[in-house]
Design a protein around this nucleic acid. Structure first.
Lengths: 147, 147
DNA sequence: TACACAGTGTAGCATTGGCTACACTTTGAG
DNA sequence: CTCAAAGTGTAGCCAATGCTACACTGTGTA
């Protein structure tokens, strides 16, 4: 029998769970962009009647070039419908995702506000947090939002 | 005077703030990797005496190739000290970051657990959330963690 | 001491998501 | 109807982060 040259890892947190969590987080990150875009498109459509590339760029804090390329991917993935020089529309799939995101965003912000966090900080943190909140946690946050 | 062809965006949420939040989130994402790595290295060093590439790979859920390349970047940025075929060490800067991350992680998990979230889900969500929690929010979470 | 094998390193490819620079379309003012 | 400016699209660059395939090191065991 061969003694392994270095002892196997006996971790405090099991590596498998840790790795799974991180893989999950990376998967989420892949869809964060989609979520940010569809949410912005939904908001702009509601507030202005249509979503245009420049507005998205301003809203998302990137150049119109990045918006353009990302929209191409989102179209490929079935979230939006784009035609050259035309307004941007959400597909039914995209609309559904947008509504989920808006809901999650509202819940997270309301919760943070109810902890006494300022409006600005709450918005800032929510933007980062909202994509990583599981349904269970979202429900718990909603339950624990008082006032 | 020229009337603008299309009316300027009058957003519900001001675009500037929105864009700033998202830019902030992107900046955070750039350092998430660093945080995950230094935290893992600190944990492994504590539990096994040393951190090796394979262990990190297992722990982070990526191949050893990715670990290797990322370590090169982290060394470039001053978080770790690496020599070929040797164990991986944190610099003082890296160690400080690791400790902050571990603290944030503990606070977030404890808070989620105190909301009644299960251990597994709490760990999963914390992994995604912890990188996006501002000091203000972290303090608020700690304050509102009861039992 | 030799060597098998686990661990480590490197080459090269793909995708995502930033950017600048430049070209093309659309549209409203005149 | 014209045309300049705003908006949109494209080419090409860079960095980060995945991967597979293959090469090299180091070390305990036989």
């Amino acid at each position: 029998m061969k003694k392994s040259p270095r002892p196997a890892a006996k971790d405090v947190r099991p590596s498998a769970l840790q790795a799974e969590s991180l893989r999950q987080t990376r998967r989420e990150h892949a869809s964060e962009t989609a979520e940010d875009y569809v949410e912005a498109i939904a908001d702009l459509s509601a507030s202005q009647g249509e979503a245009r590339v420049v507005d998205l760029a301003r809203r998302l804090g990137v150049t119109h070039v990045t918006v353009n390329r990302t929209l191409a991917r989102l179209q490929r993935e079935g979230f939006v419908s784009v035609q050259p020089y035309r307004a941007i529309f959400l597909t039914p799939t995209g609309l559904k995702l947008a509504e989920e995101c808006q809901h999650r965003h509202r819940v997270v912000v309301a919760f943070l506000r109810s902890l006494g966090i300022s409006e600005k900080i709450a918005e800032l943190d929510a933007e980062g947090i909202e994509h990583h909140v599981s349904p269970e946690t979202l429900a718990a946050l909603a339950r624990h939002t008082h006032r």
